[in-house]
């Protein structure tokens, strides 16, 4: 079942178009930086973008910082929102559920396929950014951490791998919202927009002092904490909290998605 869903996902042009667009955006930024040599001042703009002019090995981190706030959540919301609602809207959900598999397995298979998309998309951005970054800006044996300590290329690569895992995990919350809405509505677009609306609300509350009491529990609160992986020593506390908060959202939202999907009327 899981293999079927993954194969279905990977055969869809929209999946690859999303991934290509996600990789293209940082590539455009890299080319513009290379041509103009006009990077943002250090401490301004996306994290590490100012540093890539001197060392291309940091461009994967900068690229992930570029796509994380908006483009990646949009792509994930579209794919996850389509998972169940897309099948319902074209009428294939009833045929899917007539097969001798439980609805729980169908939902798990949908979730796993979304997770695969997530990891493929985030990894693709990091890998293409590494290739483009080192090709356009070159690579230095030592990069500068936020704390000023030198980082070897091996350390940069290791930390970037952890960044990929963390960002992919952060997006699981988005995927869970979209998947829940996907089990409620028959409109894939509606599910995606609903998930993005929830994220915008979270982003607004994160910047609001009046929301201080709920801020630590907002799904987007710790998204940018991956930057802490490039400090020396690494600041793990926010990363750990980010992993935990996303985990809670996943459990709760997928719980509701499961409860709803198990009794979903698929004849209408």
């Amino acid at each position: 079942m899981i293999r079927v869903e993954i194969r279905k996902l990977m055969r869809r042009p929209r999946t690859w178009i999303s991934i290509v667009l996600l990789c293209l955006l940082p590539a455009i930024v890299a080319v513009l930086l290379r041509v103009t040599h006009l990077g943002p001042r250090p401490g301004e703009g996306p994290a590490f973008l100012s540093a890539v002019l001197a060392n291309g090995t940091l461009f994967p981190a900068a690229a992930l910082g570029i796509v994380l706030p908006l483009f990646l959540p949009v792509a994930v919301a579209v794919i996850a929102g389509d998972a169940v609602a897309g099948e319902a809207s074209v009428g294939t959900l009833r045929y899917l559920l007539t097969r001798p598999v439980g609805r729980t397995r169908v939902l798990v298979a949908k979730l796993v396929s979304v997770l695969v998309f997530l990891f493929v998309a985030v990894s693709a951005v990091a890998v293409t950014a590494y290739v483009i970054g080192t090709a356009l800006f070159g690579s230095q044996p030592l990069a500068t951490s936020l704390s000023g300590a030198p980082l070897t290329t091996a350390q940069v690569v290791q930390r970037t791998v952890v960044v990929v895992l963390y960002i992919a995990w952060s997006m699981i919350g988005v995927a869970s919202v979209a998947l829940l809405l996907s089990t409620i509505t028959d409109s894939a677009l509606g599910a995606a927009i609903g998930a993005l609306a929830a994220l915008v609300l979270s982003q607004v509350l994160v910047t609001l002092d009046a929301a201080n009491a709920v801020k630590p529990y907002l799904p987007t609160r710790y998204w940018l904490s991956w930057v802490d992986l490039f400090r020396d020593p690494i600041l793990w506390s926010d990363i750990e909290r980010g992993v935990l908060v996303q985990g809670v959202y996943v459990v709760v939202l997928l719980g509701f998605a499961w409860a709803n999907f198990m009794t979903k009327d698929i004849t209408s």
């Binding site: 250090p42 401490g43 703009g45 994290a47 590490f48 936020l146 000023g148 940018l224 802490d228």
Partner: peptide, 9 residues
């Protein structure tokens, strides 16, 4: 003592 920001330190 390190003052940490979203993109610097």
């Amino acid at each position: 003592v390190d003052t940490i920001t979203g993109t610097g330190e």
